[in-house]
């Protein structure tokens, strides 16, 4: 199964594991759904509908205390299973079971966070090419973004496209994962392999930016 080719699967890459530390929350989009993706204090990963059941505040603006995600607006706290555990305005109140955040299936594989809107998130195994390089947004459709990597020279030479769909740029293996955020915005995650040195990684990071310029010029 190819990485970097438009494979049909039930999950989408929303971020690099490296970029979400314990007790942090971020916003993500999966198949058009606005999500809050967060890690509890024990490194457990959660993906929820990005909407507090109370007054609709985006939970991605919230904060993590212990193993709970709290909403920034009124501080309501939600357990890992999505159920509301605490309402600060009424400290003595046991919140009814009906107050719960909608949860999604999420896993980590190849150093990447994958979310499914069904109940069985899967990740792509990128083999040894699972060293995080960076995530970056392209203002263009997914297909244009993907193609741009193949069309952008690295140090003067176009990357080779392997049969697995992986690219080799300047001798460095690269996996490109794409999350179509909208028709005109794509979040790209780029992985390389662990043996690549810092200088080469920085060069690859700039090559990603060059690919973005190619893609966005084409989309304009």
């Amino acid at each position: 199964m190819g990485v970097g080719v438009g494979v049909r699967m039930n999950s989408v890459a929303v971020g690099l594991s490296r970029d979400l530390a314990p007790k942090r929350v971020m916003r993500a989009v999966a198949y058009g759904h606005d999500l809050a993706v967060w890690r509890d204090g024990e490194n457990g990963l959660h993906a929820w509908d990005n909407r507090c059941p109370h007054r609709g505040m985006r939970l991605s603006h919230g904060f993590v205390r212990g193993d709970r995600l709290a909403c920034l607006y009124h501080g309501w706290q939600y357990r890992k299973d999505g159920g509301c555990a605490y309402i600060p305005a009424h400290p003595g109140l046991e919140p009814p079971e009906t107050i719960r955040a909608q949860t999604y299936s999420v896993i980590e594989k190849s150093g990447v966070i994958w979310v499914s809107t069904g109940n069985d998130a899967q990740g792509v195994d990128t083999g040894p090419v699972s060293e995080p390089l960076r995530s970056l947004t392209f203002f263009c459709a997914e297909a244009i973004a993907r193609a741009a990597f193949e069309d952008t020279p690295f140090a003067g030479n176009l990357p080779q496209v392997e049969s697995t769909g992986r690219l080799v740029a300047g001798g460095h293996p690269v996996a490109v994962l794409a999350n179509p955020v909208t028709e005109s915005e794509t979040l790209i995650h780029v992985l390389t392999s662990a043996g690549v040195g810092i200088a080469a990684k920085k060069a690859l990071s700039r090559w990603c930016e060059a690919a973005r310029s190619v893609a966005e010029r084409q989309a304009a």
Binding site: K23, H61, F63, V64, R65, G66, R68, A70, L72, G75, Q77, A85, Y86, P88, P91
Partner: peptide, 13 residues
């Protein structure tokens, strides 16, 4: 720019 409420002591346990 809000304060990091997560740095405060846990309440609600």
């Amino acid at each position: 720019i809000h304060y990091l409420h997560d740095l405060k002591e846990t309440s609600g346990d």
